[in-house]
Design a protein around this nucleic acid. Structure first.
Lengths: 187, 187
DNA sequence: TTTATTTCTAAGCAACTGCTTAGAAATGGA
DNA sequence: TCCATTTCTAAGCAGTTGCTTAGAAATAAA
């Protein structure tokens, strides 16, 4: 045995996540990661293999973080009202200190589009489907809704979340709130 | 007088626009622009000043292009139904040969976020407001709607367009159609 | 045909990209 | 205390970034 790591992998990934979140994948360089993570390039590569490897770990870490919000929705039995609250919680979640950074997953979908790394793209699409299932489960609490309606509305809501993430980057707080209120008028 | 330009500026901008549209701003290099535009770097810089300058011209050109669709909506008197048709037209408009490229303006908003070049950001926000006004004018055809309702719904629709552009990059055709149909039940 | 003027090509600038590596420094078990 | 083993630092790799420039090639007017 010998010297032990002077950093905690989870901690440095949390820091890296912030960078990717603000700047996007391509606009985040390994030099920037070095500074933000507080470790040398050698350590980055020996721990995570590549820039892509760091990013994938960040996505995993992001999922855990957003799970803290989804948990609230999972536990509540407020149906549509609970989902609306989730939208507002998400708005708070996706704010950064002095600006708007949206959702890491959504940002990445937009940046990489259909041409991105297949592993990442699969990860992103599965994330979307998880949100969809989450909403569907909440909608089921309304016994008047048919299965077809639930699926359509869950799809609608998950897609609206994508829009909200993007919109949060340029719209004012009032515009965002108006959007949410109108989006929920017919559910 | 002397030698005349061997290229048409509007034509090369159209080509550059395609590149930015597919790859985003940062992921498009001047070398790539050279190839796509078919002219030398010197010509790019003497005509447009900088990469940013090329991009701004592309945004202008994009506005003209999307105006061909907005014109249809402006001339029709179908109210909400006309706007829904616009959503479908936009889906066709934002498709590329083998994938999904979304909307150039929306892509750029997402990429640059709140930290982008101020001139570009202003251009992008004004674009959003134009779409909003476009929708408001169509909604006015419904005499039952109050001014407050019209403004809220126009904001809702324009924001939904942002979402649709993003969603078009990962969702299936059916998911996108389901989204549009449900989105319009709110009006 | 000459010539002033412009556009063109192609090479080059320093700074940055993701990633590697040689060697110094540190440390847990013997 | 020793030293094998691991982590660390710092330099360096070739390729790319946005942008510039020297000089050759082309051309409209005289």
């Amino acid at each position: 045995m010998a010297r032990s790591k002077q950093y905690n992998e989870e901690e440095v990934i949390e820091k890296a996540m912030g960078l990717f979140w603000r700047n996007g994948y391509e606009n985040t360089s390994v030099r920037m990661l070095e500074k933000e993570m507080g470790i040398n390039q050698f350590s980055i590569y020996s721990s995570f293999g590549s820039k892509n490897g760091v990013f994938l770990e960040c996505i995993k870490s992001y999922k855990k973080r957003i799970h803290r919000i989804t948990e609230i929705l999972e536990k509540s039995n407020n149906g549509v009202a609970g989902i609306k609250q989730y939208f507002y919680d998400f708005l708070e979640f996706s704010k950064d200190d002095n600006g708007k950074k949206g959702c890491l997953v959504t940002n990445t979908v937009n940046e990489l589009g259909a041409h991105g790394d297949p592993i990442i793209m699969t990860e992103l699409k599965s994330f979307f489907n998880e949100i969809k299932t989450l909403f569907a489960n909440s909608l089921k609490q309304d016994k008047n809704k048919t299965q077809v309606t639930i699926e359509k509305q869950a799809n609608y809501l998950a897609t609206s979340m994508l829009g909200l993430s993007l919109a949060s980057k340029i719209l004012s707080r009032k515009e965002l709130e108006d959007y949410i209120e109108t989006a929920f008028t017919n559910l």
